[in-house]
Design a protein around this nucleic acid. Structure first.
Lengths: 142, 142
DNA sequence: TATCGGATGAGAATGATTATAAACCATCCA
DNA sequence: TGGATGGTTTATAATCATTCTCATCCGATA
């Protein structure tokens, strides 16, 4: 699906973003590509339409889009490795904004239902579930 | 809780790891610290007991422990930003080994139960759940 | 004791991302 | 028209986490 200029204009206006050519092309590239792509991937795609675009522009605009909620980040963790010595089965509650992680107990996953939606061969023998939201502090700020 | 040398020795033997002083101290530092710490954090802790230890050693051993299953990685995503243009509510299925991400549909979360375990003030208005396991290809390799 | 292989330490190299600063461009007002 | 303004883009430098390299070390074994 290709967004019309009008549609992007509206979205941008809603979120207080200026409409530039680069911005529009980056956004379209993400929407058009089903999947979960990296800034480099998107840079490569966008360059076919704007050969002079800078990688920094792609980064800038992706960040903006994520902050506005126009896009979702698929890697909503702290940018550095974190390690967990707790080997008992438990799940994580992650704040999408500040990236803090808390342990969470409880049986709230319906594995029977879940397994119906699993692709063939996916191994869930040691399931780890992470639930993302906003922690109290970040929710208050907003 | 502090592991005895004996306990670590056993664990290491089970996983075919040589027992070294550094290895033991790094492992103890992770186990003793409840929380989700970065290699730098652990380096700082371990240095109090082994001032000459190298950051690379901490990284090496954390990697080893994770590969053996002695520790769990709390950031099991690709190391670069990934972006998702699909704004419809959906969840993710992530392979802990190759880091691939697939969308998954279906209502398999019992939000009523989940909310009982949420800390006060945690905002779940746009819940995103990620379920980790091994994709078919990685499960086969193992 | 001599040898061997894996482990360690120091620092260089890499790769992703961010910061900086100059150039650019549309818009607003004189 | 024309100049000031403010946000955007570009190129590049800087930063940060992580990995690599390689010389050295250590411990087990012959």
């Amino acid at each position: 699906m290709r967004l019309t200029h009008e549609q992007f204009r509206e979205l941008a206006a809603e979120h207080g973003l200026a409409v530039t050519h680069q911005r529009q092309v980056v956004f379209e590239a993400v929407i058009a590509s089903h999947g979960h792509y990296s800034p480099e991937d998107i840079y490569a795609t966008v360059r076919r339409r704007i050969p002079s675009i800078s990688l920094a522009t792609v980064y800038n605009n992706l960040r903006l889009f994520i902050e506005c909620g126009l896009l979702r980040e698929v890697t909503p963790h702290a940018s550095t490795l974190r390690v967990d010595g707790n080997l008992k089965p438990h799940h994580h509650l992650v704040c999408s904004r500040c990236k803090s992680v808390r342990d969470i107990e409880g049986e709230f996953i319906d594995f029977k239902r879940l397994s119906r939606h699993l692709p063939d061969g996916f191994d869930l023998t040691q399931p780890l579930v992470e639930v993302f939201g906003l922690c109290r502090r970040c929710a208050a700020k907003k």
